[in-house]
Design a binder for these strands. Structure first.
Length: 191
DNA sequence: CGCTTTTGACCGGCGC
DNA sequence: GCGCCGGTCAAAAGCG
């Protein structure tokens, strides 16, 4: 598994370990951004809870109504995917008028489904980068359509286009920013 | 012309 | 076995 340097743009960071989560919570802390249970709106009572563990681990609850792919993913050819690969799953809730948020990556829409018990359709996206299998699901909160529920599945095997841009255009700035450790982010930038 | 979006069809798991 | 459901495919249309 490739590890990416810390990204000041938290939505570009799909690492789900605790240290990877910190930058998220730092910038997602403003009430507009709330981590969501992986149930993806399954239980509205948990909508305001920050449940990093469940979000991070993709625990056995898995997706709410999804067909059981909790412990292994069966591909079309019947090959089971590695569990660890499947577990890189992050979901959050964002107050936004727009459902499409620029998170630094390029996404290609590949599906749209109306979901039971929700008036709003769910949109499915794949990372446009060839060989990158990261998926993303976006839907409006059925309880409160002002919010958008976004769920990422997988880890990018490449850096984001915006990272590439900064690395090319501003190597000095990039090298300074990207090498900051989460702890130093806390002490220097956010306190 | 190449990439993205749209959209109905298809697939597999699950419950009955 | 059948129908429901969420997720994915893929052809056609759209767009820059």
């Amino acid at each position: 598994m490739e590890y990416y340097p810390q990204n000041p743009k938290p939505s570009c960071n799909y690492s789900y370990t605790n240290e990877g989560l910190d930058p998220w919570t730092i910038e997602l802390q403003p009430s507009d951004y709330l981590m969501l249970d992986d149930g993806f709106g399954e239980d509205s009572s948990s909508q305001n809870m920050v449940s990093s563990e469940q979000v991070a681990s993709g625990s056995s609850t898995g997706y709410s109504g999804a067909t059981s792919r909790n412990n292994s993913i069966k591909c079309k050819n019947g090959v089971n995917k590695n569990k660890t690969e499947e577990e890189h799953r992050v979901a959050f809730r964002t107050k936004s008028d727009l459902e499409i948020m620029d998170d630094g990556y390029k996404w290609r829409k590949y599906g749209k489904k109306s979901v039971k018990n929700s008036p709003n359709p769910r949109n499915y996206y794949k990372c446009s980068s060839s060989g990158c299998n990261v998926k993303k699901r976006v839907e409006r909160d059925r309880e409160d359509s002002r919010y958008v529920l976004t769920s990422y599945d997988g880890v990018h095997n490449h850096e984001s286009p915006c990272m590439a841009y900064y690395n090319n255009q501003m190597p000095l700035m990039a090298s300074n920013a990207w090498t900051l450790q989460p702890s130093s982010l806390h002490s220097s930038s956010f306190s």
